[in-house]
Each structure stands twice: as C-alpha cells, then as structure tokens.
Design a binder for these strands. Sequence first.
DNA 1: GTCTATACCAAGATAGAC
DNA 2: GTCTATCTTGGTATAGAC
Lengths: 195, 195
Amino acid sequence: MARTQGSHSDITGPRIREAALRLFAQHGYAAVSMRQIAKEVGVQAGALYNYTPDKQSLLFSLMSSHMEELQAAWDSVPRAAYAMDRLRAFTGFHIRFHLERPDAVFIAYMELRNLTEENFTVIESLRRVYENGVEGILKEGVEQGVFSIPDTKIATLAVIAMLNGVNTWYRSEGRLSLDEVERVYWGMVQKAVSA
Amino acid sequence: MARTQGSHSDITGPRIREAALRLFAQHGYAAVSMRQIAKEVGVQAGALYNYTPDKQSLLFSLMSSHMEELQAAWDSVPRAAYAMDRLRAFTGFHIRFHLERPDAVFIAYMELRNLTEENFTVIESLRRVYENGVEGILKEGVEQGVFSIPDTKIATLAVIAMLNGVNTWYRSEGRLSLDEVERVYWGMVQKAVSA
DNA sequence: GTCTATACCAAGATAGAC
DNA sequence: GTCTATCTTGGTATAGAC
C-alpha cells in the first residue's frame, strides 16, 4: 500500500540520516542521489529539503556528529593513573567504538574530499583534538619511562592507523571474538611503544 | 591558441590515464566526469572513447596496473635469508613504493566500492597475493623463533595498515626525511612482532 | 584520431497544491 | 510536512564529418 500524506517530522529526520549514512558509506557521497535517499526513507525527494538545506550539509552533519560522539565517548572513559593503563583503555575503546559504527567511520575518512573547504576545516580540527589526546598518553608514558618512542606524533598516527584497520576485516561471525581481537591488538600496540 | 585536429595516439593515451588518476584521487571516481578528464587532457569528451570503452574500464585499468606494479616491484627486491631482514626490507619497500604513488594508492583503497563485481574480484585477489607474501615473512620469523605473533593474519593486516598510514601525513618538505620515517616505522614494526 | 553535435537520462533543487 | 511537477544543469555515450 502506498504511503499517504501527512506529518512525520519526528521520525523522518532520523530516518533520513540513517539512510544517508548507509548509502554514502556503501556507494560514496557523490554516487548517491537525493532521490535514492528519499526512496529508502519512503518519501519524495522534495521532502528531504525540510530537513537539510542541501546535500553537502547532510554530509557535514553526519561527519561532525560522528566526530563529536567519538570525542564525548572517549572523554567519558575513566582516566587511569598510569600511561600504560590509559593506552590499553584507549586501544579497547577505539576498536569497539569504531566497530560499532562502521558506516560513520568509513564516511569520516573517505568523504573528507567531498566537504567544502570550511566544513573540512571543522572536521579536521575535531580529528586533531582526538589525536592530541592519544599523543598525550604517549608523551606521559615516555616521561614515566615506560614507553620508548622516538616521535610521539608519528607513533600516534601509526597506532590509530593500525587500530582503524580492524574495520576493514573484522566480522562478528568470524573466527575471533571481540575480546580476542582487542587482546591481539593490545599486544602489538604495547610492544610497539614499550621501553 | 586552440588545439587543432590530428592524430596523437601515442601521447594522448598516457595523458588520459594520468589525468584520470589525479582527478579520481582528488575528487573520487563518481564525482569526476568524462568531460573533466577530457578537458584536462585537452581533447573533446568523445575522443576519450578511442582509448577506453567506458569509464569503469578506465578505473579498473588504473587499479589493476597499480596492483601489478606493486607485486612486480616487491618480487624484484632481493630476498634476504632471515625473516627479520626480509621484514625490514619490506617495511622500507612498502613505505617508499606507496609514497611515490599517492594517487594510485588512494584509488586502490577508496574506489573498490565503485568497481563492478567482476573487476572487484580481480583486484581483491591481487591484494591477497601481496598480503600473503607479507604473512609468509611473519610465519617464517615465528618458526625461526625471532617473532612472537599470536595471529599472523591479523599481524599482517596490522603492519600494512600502519605503514599505509604514512601516506596520509607525509610531505617531502616536512620535518622528517624519508630515511628517518623509515627508521621510525621499522622500530615500531620490529618491536611489535619481536619475540 | 579528433572534432562538433546530440541523444538520452538523471542529477540537485524549487514551486505551489493539499 | 509531504506531494507532484518542473526548472536547469550536467552526466555518459554515440554518430558522422573532417
């Protein structure tokens, strides 16, 4: 049965965001049309413009929400006293947070080039804040003498790149449990930075 | 002065590939039009179809060439006797090869979703061959007792992901020389897998 | 081999009725 | 708030002249 007219502002908004997130991740921002998004949601294309001024704003909104949620979630993790413990906590947090949102993560990395210059600047600064938090852990570990790192900036990026890689291969029905994945990666991270 | 008509098959072909590589990397496959590519090369859009049957074939050709060059280059690196030496050689090779071709690398990772199913299968199998080569080194190191790795498959992907990260931040005019970058990464890779 | 011209289709976005 | 209808632009690909 066809959908009738009427007002659904409370549910249509989130549904547009969910559909856009999934479609952008799957096919890429440029390859997805507003008509496709509308079809997924079950409305006509014109109706989307009650929720976003244009397609670019929709992309930016999805990306900034993701980065802000990431930061807020990490900020809410209890801060351990020793750098080694904090790095272990970070490793587990980062892997789990990212595996729970594969689409948002994918978009946050892949669609940077499709942001306007202004929007790009905003997202990049959010990312830098997150990275600085990680670098802070590494610096403290060096000061505490438990880490040996020639360049904490590079080590930060290397650790994050390594952990992000999990998203490219992990499948929940695969041979490894999340706990095992976390343990394996923590082993490598720990050895890589240890004194 | 406007370009005149005439035959330039020997130079136009490569120029189309170079332009497509750069534009796909910069804006994404879906966001780049055949008209844009033609404009970069200095021909009309219709002329492109003397060199590629369609846009998809152009993308696939760029990606498969890249993967085949990667494999051929690694195969030509002299094979050291000990796993530790081979892993060091791999680390340096991978970083340098990828930094020399940032556009091709970017495309090879980001545009997989824009390949047809058939083309995707081909590219994926080329990638798997390359990864298996790396895993072979890690397995040998474990047998030789110099590496301690709970899961060589994951370690392979982790090492490659870490090294690929260099492309996201390295700039030749930056504060670190290529040799220094290589040394820093080798330090982390070595520690991460060592017994 | 390249050109101009165009067929054909789908994109983003808007207008106005309900 | 959503609909239908449409404007305008730009996409891939092809045809036929030079």
